[in-house]
Amino acid sequence: MAAEGHSGIDALSQFKLAPVFGQLGDTLHISQANVMMAVASALTLLLMWVGMSPRAMIPGRLQSAAEMAYETVMTLCVEQIGHEGKKFFPFVFTLFFFILFGNLMGVFPLFFTFTSHIAVTLGLSLFVFLLVTFVAIKEHGLHFFSYFVPKGVPVVLLPLMVVIEVISYLSRIISLSVRLFANMMAGHVMLEVFAGFVVMLGTAGGIFLLPAALSLSVNVVLIGFELLVASLQAYVFAILTCIYLHDAVHLH
C-alpha cells in the first residue's frame, strides 16, 4: 500500500475509491464504500437477528449485546429528547449502528472506512438536519421560526442576531459531518504514516530497527485509540442528533 515502489509515505491513497466486482461494479459504479455500507447494515441486522433469536430469559453473549444495544440507544433517546424520544428510536438506532460498524470495521485490515469520506458524513448530517427541521415545522408550524429570535435582545440588534442564529443553525450540518469525517480520516492517516515508518526504517536495518520497533508499538497503541474514537464518534453523532431533535420537539 504505502511506500510501494517509491520512497514517500502515501497516506491518502487508502481513501481512494475503486470499482469492485469487475465489469459489473464498473458499470453500476459500485465501490468499496458501497459494499462496506451494505456490510455494516448486514452486520447490524445480523447482530439483532441472531442475538435475539434464542429469546432466553438469561441471555447469552450475543443476546446480551443485542439487548444492551437496544437499551443504550433507548436511554439515549429518552434522556436527551424526553418522552417523545421513543418515536425517534428507530432512526437514532439505525444511525448509531450504521456509523459504529462503519467506524469499527475500518480498524481491521482489508476493510474500507466509509465514514472517512466527507460525502458520506455530509449525506448523513444533511439527512439529520432535514429531519430535525421537518420535525420542528411539523410540531410547531410557523412558530418554529421563533427559534431564530433569541429572547431579551434589544430590537436594534435583532436583525443581526437573527442572521447569526440562522448561520449557527445551518452550521450544524458542517460541524456534525466534519467532526466524524475528520476524526476517522485523521486516525487512519496516522496509522498509515506510522506503518510507513515501520516499513521504511525496518528495511533500512541496523540501528534503524529500534525506531522501527517504536513505530510499530505506536501503531499498536493507535489501533486501541482508534477503537475508542470509533465508538465515541458514533456515540457523539447519535447524541448530537438527539440533542437537535430535542430542540426540534421542545423549541429551546
Binding site: S168, L170, S171, I173, I174, V178, A182, N183, Y235, I239
Partner: peptide, 25 residues
C-alpha cells in the same frame, strides 16, 4: 453527554470545528 468530549484534544477539536463550520456557512 458533556463529559464525553472533555479531554483537551476533544475540546480543542470541538472549538475548531464549531468556529470553522459557522464561518464556512
Amino acid at each position: 453527554p458533556k463529559g464525553i468530549e472533555s479531554s483537551p484534544m476533544g475540546i480543542g477539536l470541538r472549538v475548531g470545528i464549531e468556529l470553522v463550520a459557522a464561518l464556512v456557512v
